[in-house]
Amino acid sequence: MAAPVLTARNLTKTYLSGISQRLQVLRDVSLTVAAGESVSIRGESGSGKSTLINLLAGLDAPDAGTLDWGGSPASVDRRADYLGIVFQSFYLIPEMDALANVLMAARIRGPIGSAERARARDLLGKVGLGERATHLPSQLSGGERQRVALARALMNGPKLVLADEPTGNLDEHTGDAVIELLLSLCRDTRTALVLVTHNAAHAAKCDRPLNLHEGVLG
């Protein structure tokens, strides 16, 4: 049996609050995600959702616990190959057009060629922005920007996509469309998805909805 794409064991994270108070944001969080599986994590503001996503992405280190990507310890060197990340605020590079933003993920992984360019165009086509490839982020709407970010997350053919409130800055209708697109793209490419969201309807569309409450995942 293939190793899970993500295995987190007993992740704990504590932040210093004030001068001496310690705030435990995550308590012994364990999570396993299988290939092609979609998992949603819901929780109130301050429940530790973003902290958990940052730990799962290897952007932050846990105080305790271990994190494996595909059976091997998570590391910065593997991030470009293994992970695609979608943020609430899109984070597109304003000096680059949509195509260059999508290709940026591939450039960071290594040299790019015609195959990567073709794939980026194809992904932009899949997210419905084939005709907007040369548009700058400032020339795109919020929903369009987030779709460019989705294409960027999928550019390197990751095993796992981590999406942190991807609809947080979008209106309801656009948000629904983005979630549908994200789920269908991940399903089509058998890419595992961890979706952090406030929205119950969006969470329910994933294979396994989970709740994070006061730092405990259940």
Partner: peptide, 13 residues
Amino acid sequence: TREIGLLGALGGK
């Protein structure tokens, strides 16, 4: 700053 953070998140060293 946030773009620099993004580059790190995408795997930039």
